[in-house]
């Protein structure tokens, strides 16, 4: 039996004494799968992603990442788990004092790789997302779409096992949106498990992948895993 990349069983989440944002969420992401997470604003998509990229512990339920029960995993092992997850944040979270190149190279620096080993990969990736001429540009001098592409390049540069993207095409034109989806699909073909949280119906229909919808904190499977 293949070990799921991500497994949620009856997961619930509430902040402090507030109401539950997520209720009894159960699903698995198999290795190499491609899925969309949809739902109205405030349905809990960002919270679900946070639990998946290990930014918060759940209030209840079981989360298994790469076959490891997160609640039983020692905190010293978390960095190794997190390095297997690439995240595209909705608000990009780029470091404004670093250049586009340095932002994209950050996960590789964190992984302890030498600059001479990754320079070419980072430059090629930035060219792929159309920013080959803006390597030394600081994020503040770039448009929203350009910043989003840097955020995507940063998330995929280390070839993560799982890629989580929160509205990754929200700030780019349709052509660039398609190009970015192709990047995700290429990565997916290489074995990365991809989950994209989005409102973009065109994007969802074009990829024809699995779709999970969050409604009032509950997860509904709209379209099952594609063969």
């Amino acid at each position: 039996m293949v070990t799921a990349m991500v497994r949620f069983e009856n997961v619930g989440m509430r902040y402090g004494a507030g109401p539950e944002v997520l209720r009894d969420v159960t699903f698995t992401l198999d290795p190499g799968s491609f899925s969309f997470l949809t739902g109205p604003s405030g349905a809990g998509k960002s919270t679900l992603l946070k639990l998946m990229y290990l930014a918060e512990p759940p209030s209840r339920g079981l989360i298994t990442m790469f076959g490891q029960d997160v609640s039983r995993t020692h905190r010293s092992q978390f960095p190794a788990l997190r390095r297997r997850i690439g995240v595209v944040f909705q608000d990009f979270r780029l470091l404004d004092h670093l250049t586009a190149y340095e932002n994209v190279a950050l996960p590789l620096r964190i992984a302890g790789q030498d600059a001479t080993d990754y320079r070419q990969d980072v430059e090629e990736l930035l060219s792929w997302v159309g920013l080959g001429e803006r390597l030394k540009a600081k994020p503040r001098t770039l448009s929203g779409g350009e910043q989003q592409r840097i955020a995507i390049a940063r998330a995929v540069v280390a070839r993560p096992d799982v890629l989580l993207a929160d509205e990754p095409t929200g700030n780019v034109d349709p052509d660039m949106g398609k190009r970015l989806i192709r990047l995700f699909e290429e990565l997916n073909k290489l074995g990365t498990t991809v989950l994209i949280a989005t409102h973009d119906r065109t994007l969802i229909e074009s990829a024809r992948a699995r779709e999970m919808r969050l409604v009032d904190g509950r997860l509904v499977e709209l379209r099952g895993p594609q063969p």
Binding site: P79, R82, R83, R84, I85, R93, L106, I110
Partner: peptide, 11 residues
Amino acid sequence: EIVELLHQMGA
């Protein structure tokens, strides 16, 4: 935010 980002990236 920077600390949390680095932390999230597995630093």
